[in-house]
Design a protein around this nucleic acid. Structure first.
Lengths: 137, 137
DNA sequence: GTCCATGCAAATACTTTGCAGCCCA
DNA sequence: TGGGCTGCAAAGTATTTGCATGGAC
């Protein structure tokens, strides 16, 4: 991505174009789902003076303005579940509630679907879906 | 869940049945996707002497032995993504790599599916799928 | 009796916050 | 020039670790 594009993307969201933001967004687009630590490492190669706190703040701003997204990971996660059957989750954006969602019909369909569809040489062992939305009052 | 069942579940996995493990598993099954903090609160009502460190250790053991699962959340997450179009993720269990996965066909199908299927009065706004597996060498 | 598990506390992440000074618009 | 942004450091929070003691089998 050219710097011009990056500047434009930032400006377009009504944010001030600062060198730190340009550098962070550039690093983000160049790397593959980095952790903050990875990003910091990349950024510090050329810009060792950018503070980690700033990187956190910039990322937070980007996420708010839809310039970046957070990705779910399997690690460092804080909520537990004793339901052992495979199931999906409903995330309510209003209340932060998480509900289990079972759908055998959907599972069968998707199992079949992923079996047929060869994804980038990826062998799917399992899958889970997060549905984000809200419960009707 | 009866205590007998709980004891059995724990023993079945080749783990020692300790009061702490029974209490944690009981609390887990009674609550809805608790955080460690929530669990601790529940547990400390009747068993204030169980150490938080122990709760962490017990949970970790349970996850290893498939007596509990970690649930993905939208908060406190460490990996970022500058890809703005909706997409899914492939998690490789061998390498910890995360790859983006686009599938317009699947998205259309699921959009239609969730629109038709009224889930517990839940209005789905968006969804994302995690596929876990491994890349062929 | 043997080990595994626990309690406790310290250590280690990881992330957020406060504030003075800076700099983009 | 003014208000948003940054750097720095301290504080806050979450989780892990080490080790002596205790308890399950």
């Amino acid at each position: 991505m050219k710097e011009k594009n990056i500047n434009f993307l930032i400006k377009e969201k009504g944010l001030r174009v600062t060198p730190q933001r340009v550098v962070v967004l550039e690093a983000l687009t160049k790397s593959n789902h980095p952790t903050v630590e990875m990003l910091t490492e990349i950024i510090h190669k050329d810009h060792p003076n950018i503070a980690i706190g700033t990187i956190y703040k910039v990322l937070e701003t980007f996420v708010e303005k839809d310039l970046a997204k957070k990705v779910l990971t399997k690690k460092d996660i804080m909520r537990y579940d004793a339901v052992l059957e495979p199931h999906h989750h409903l995330y309510c954006t209003d209340t932060d509630r998480i509900e289990d969602y079972y759908d055998e019909e959907l599972n069968e369909y998707l199992n079949e679907y992923f079996k047929k569809k060869n994804i980038k040489g990826f062998m799917t062992e399992k899958f889970s879906i997060q549905l984000t939305g809200r419960f009707k009052k």
